[in-house]
Amino acid sequence: MSRIIVVTSGKGGVGKTTVTSNLGAALAKLNRKVALVDADFGLRNLDLLLGLEERVVYTAIDVLAGECRLAQALVKDKRLNGLFLLPAAQNRNKESVSPEDMKKITNALAKGYDYIIIDSPAGIELGFRNAICSAQEALIITTPEIAAVRDADRVIGLLEAEGIHKIYLIVNRVKPKMVEDNKMMSVDDVLELLAIPLMGVIPDDERVIIATNKGEPLVMGDEDYIPTQAFMNIAKRLEGEKVPFIDLLSEQDNIISRLRRMFGG
């Protein structure tokens, strides 16, 4: 039984594509067969983040037009067994695809893959509708900022209206130090408002940006990094494993802050 999961957020720039690429890689590492579908027609990025841009030959549009078979359009990641990408067309816009088209594609993929992860575009217009129409589950990405959280709330409402009730939250780009100093919303604040189960917390880390620019998902590199672990944990939780959340604050601990806490400062 394959799972069709949409990664969405409402607001742009909160890390949908970064999460999609890393989650795909993490699930592939857990020996799952994963198809990543870029639903951001006209503004595709997923191939860049995966470092697969130069290997894209056909796109989803070609498949729908009958110009190639689905299997030909799928780009296989050579670094990780089981990771595939279905690229979006860059020279078209969102209107060139309909929800029915997306359903056709995902249903076909469902026959051969354990996970189909759809990277949704920002916004709540047709592109978003295309991305969610065949999904059974949704991962909401937000950052601890009011605008992002507000948009996430709106999107959750829309998903619920469409009958998608398995909705999970990933809070991205958390800065534990700022939260501690009361300068940033905490994960609890976000959860209290959105009231959906938490699937993962990813700390703000420059290595995520470096990995993005290199076109190699962080998960493919060193496993000791906290963001890498955070992505791996999300994959394990999706698989049904109970994994405790990483205490981000303690990871940043140093002697001084520990002493300060000891003396009640």
Partner: peptide, 21 residues
């Protein structure tokens, strides 16, 4: 949630939060 509008000709009772938006 944000973006949802409830309108009713009588009184409204919400079991849950009324979120911003």
């Amino acid at each position: 949630r944000s973006g949802i509008e409830l309108r009713h000709e009588g009184s409204i009772i919400i079991f849950g939060d009324l979120n911003p938006g």
